[in-house]
């Protein structure tokens, strides 16, 4: 007989090296984990200010919202490298972002998404093992085609497909790729990675606001327990 009083919670790997918030200290029994995977290759300079403004407005609004205690945010940037800017942290701990700081050549889209997904699922498992139910939202924002990744899109697809087949996670995971600009490769990347939804957006401030508004709405919808059906 396994007794919960003897369960070794210390044996869990909380991935604190990723700087995720310690699950033991999560003061809620349900979280919404939103992970942003953001392209910081040189081509994004045309809209980076608009993206910064929209993202920071999103953070500010979410910090004031009724779901602030439940919302955890992780930010990952990709160019030639994949940079973990923040592991999952309560939205209250997310600072003002400036995505222009680390712009560099190449687009490691698949590596970025793979790393984000891997951390999101590890953290989700650790939260669930310590009694926190989790809904995960993956938002990928890119303006171009991958040209540098070591990971294949199929390795991402396998993970997402497995999640969607599992009854326990099928309705608590959503992934959306936001394709910025006119690059025709978005649809191919979305399909190859198995990302569920694609939204094509322009580079203007209004389009960025629209994207962030959609993300906020998605988070609110998920927090209310309704099935998530993105309409962009």
């Amino acid at each position: 007989m396994k007794n919960i009083q003897n369960f070794d919670f210390d044996s869990l790997d909380f991935k604190l090296d990723f700087a995720n918030f310690n699950p033991d200290e999560v003061e809620t029994d349900e979280t919404i984990n939103a992970v942003f995977v953001v392209d910081t290759s040189p081509s994004v300079v045309t809209y980076i200010n608009e993206l910064n403004n929209a993202f920071n407005e999103f953070t500010e609004n979410m910090q004031k919202s009724h779901i602030a205690d439940k919302l955890f945010v992780s930010i990952i940037e990709f160019n030639k490298d994949v940079n973990v800017i923040s592991g999952f942290q309560p939205v209250a701990n997310i600072p003002k972002m400036d995505f222009s700081k680390r712009i560099a050549g190449y687009t490691s889209l698949y590596d970025g998404v793979h790393k984000a997904l891997e951390n999101a699922l590890n953290y989700r498992e650790n939260l669930e093992n310590s009694g926190v139910e989790t809904k995960t939202l993956l938002f990928v924002i890119t303006d171009g085609e991958d040209n540098n990744s070591k990971k294949s899109p199929n390795s991402i697809k396998k993970i997402i497909d497995k999640l969607k087949k599992d009854e326990k996670s099928a309705f608590s995971f959503t992934s959306i790729l936001f394709g910025v600009g006119n690059d025709a490769s978005f649809e191919k990347a979305q399909k190859e990675m198995g990302i569920e939804h694609l939204a094509k957006i322009g580079m203007s401030g209004n389009q960025m606001k629209k994207m962030i508004g959609f993300i906020s709405q998605s988070i609110s919808t998920v927090s209310s327990g309704k099935p998530h059906a993105p309409v962009f």
């Binding site: 369960f7 999560v26 029994d29 310590s130 009694g131 926190v132």
Partner: peptide, 19 residues
Amino acid sequence: FLSENNAMLGRKINILKTK
């Protein structure tokens, strides 16, 4: 377990379900 955590009972209910 979790006695200092404000969500202790809710999280324990989740553990009962998942484990």
